[in-house]
Design a protein around this nucleic acid. Sequence first.
DNA 1: ATGAAAGCGCTAACAT
DNA 2: ATGTTAGCGCTTTCAT
Lengths: 357, 357
Amino acid sequence: VSDEIATRPGGARRAVNSREVARLAGVSQATVSRVLSGHPNVAPSTRLRVLEAIDASGFVPNRLARSLVTSRSSTIGLVVSNITDSFYAELAEALCAQATEANLSVVLCNTQQDVDRQRDYLRLLVEQQVAGIVVASSMADAPYIGELVMKAFPIVLVNRLVNDVTADAVVIDNVSGAMKAVGHLASLGHSRIAFIRGVKSTSTSQDRESGFWAGLEASGIPMQSGCVLEGDFSWSGARQAATAFTSLDPRPTAALCADDATALGFMDGLANRGLGVPGDCAVVGFDDIRLASYWSVELTTIRQPISEMARLAMQLLIRRVNGQALPPEVIVLPAELVIRSTCGAKSHQRASFAAVS
Amino acid sequence: VSDEIATRPGGARRAVNSREVARLAGVSQATVSRVLSGHPNVAPSTRLRVLEAIDASGFVPNRLARSLVTSRSSTIGLVVSNITDSFYAELAEALCAQATEANLSVVLCNTQQDVDRQRDYLRLLVEQQVAGIVVASSMADAPYIGELVMKAFPIVLVNRLVNDVTADAVVIDNVSGAMKAVGHLASLGHSRIAFIRGVKSTSTSQDRESGFWAGLEASGIPMQSGCVLEGDFSWSGARQAATAFTSLDPRPTAALCADDATALGFMDGLANRGLGVPGDCAVVGFDDIRLASYWSVELTTIRQPISEMARLAMQLLIRRVNGQALPPEVIVLPAELVIRSTCGAKSHQRASFAAVS
DNA sequence: ATGAAAGCGCTAACAT
DNA sequence: ATGTTAGCGCTTTCAT
């Protein structure tokens, strides 16, 4: 269980502490502490002596000790399912920026979609006394999160919600986003539309699928069987979906994908089978990761305002940490359809990404 | 300075500690500690009573206190320049996996190429008493890193080296990698080859450029002026390089890019100006990120074995943390050329990434 | 303005 | 096998 490793390795002598600094400066340890925390009651001359002693000794304050005594932490946790997924990388970037702004460190937990691992990470973060946790749960059923929220532990859900958990959250309206996407496709004349799922256990995949069905109904498109294909939010999973797609009969003329990675992988798979986008199949993604806007891609998608979500998440977290027992606040941002070229709605004289000329 | 936030927010009562558990179980606090750390000298019956008390009270051990007294940390730092860069996302994923294996948490520091920020992050990590730091320095000149290494603080450089710092490190042979790339292009008949730089201050961009020049010389290709274009390891920077590229006269027939993101952006820019790859310009990247292998991309590139690098970095870090004053170990992995389709060496009936059909 | 002293929650001798 | 005790390095009363 105890695999911790020494903070001061073999050769190194023990780090200097504030007492040694005090001795060096000829003051009490309490005074050093006062200088460190910028307490007003320190004479300019002593402050100077202390600062010199700090410099001379190479003293580095121990945050662990400080946190232990103050019960305040300068660390938060970020739990995501896959940091190599552009969406989460961009989220991590934005959240780190926000955290830095607030003088907070971020412990990154990459669950790889593993339920047990997510639980373990959460527990570990709590043991580490993080001030709070921002989590995009790998699964809609994640009981341990509910327990933490119940204990009034500061948790903010982001992007993905969790069943039976009422906590602060920042999400977009996934259902209406998917409906907008279907509406867009329908308006372009498509009536055979496929949906490529993400990881089925996530709230995002579920909600987007609901929106897909609702969108079909709203557009008066009859339901077809077999038009929902499995995916897993990964490029490779979506490539397999593309294979399945090509053998559908009648083959849909459009596909709504559970996220942009899925859309990209799906298009990769289509291209591999000689099918063009949007000619043979219109494609809509979800997220609007940076890659989606590049010229060779120009993916029509539902936008998630990632930076804004990170900003709001941090705001909720800090509010929760400082606040009294506030009611949970769920922020649902509107889902915006970004029309680019993969549905043919906009003409785009696209060459190839890496064209064989 | 002190922006820490409370670990126990407003409403919540103070967390239970091991003393309360002891009281509940009718044992001494030391016994609780023994149960927690799996000490052998605990009678099965008492252990059971303690475990029950832990369960009943919802006790969560405080790692800060433990670390404070043991001088052992279960946290390491990871410093990268840009987590949305696929290479670093993949590195973070691999390192997190390694860390989890070793029961370690990872504090993510995203420097955004900012010198000051990198220094601040490093300092913060030290204050947090992390056991060690894995850093891919945003710049080859990073004095503070040298100071830490001098103080025998466990640091492992990964991917990028730092001037005048002799520390544990894991890198690939960037010079020879670039030479191989140039050799490959030369063997395909190219004699006008461009190099698209990364961030100039990084060791990787510098070494790869050195390899570029060495490669030209090795292939007997005369140096041309103006064949080195500025980039910044970003897609957008590389798009601008593509614009500059098109106005070169004579225009090179091939380009070696400082990394895969650069290659992708460069190709995006070429496509945007109606130039095809490899027909109008052969392209070689550097890193072999996952995207490079997808069918619509098929980027010829120099491979970095990211998982292996993370594994070795963690190994070096743990060795350093536990070890006596060992001499620094610099692991230089061979650079492997991965031939795909962007140089025309392999025929690849590629359609478009998202082809207008 | 400064110092002395009491812990924060835990581990690790040292007793018994 | 269990309890007692002394800290880890810091903040924070409370004196002075």
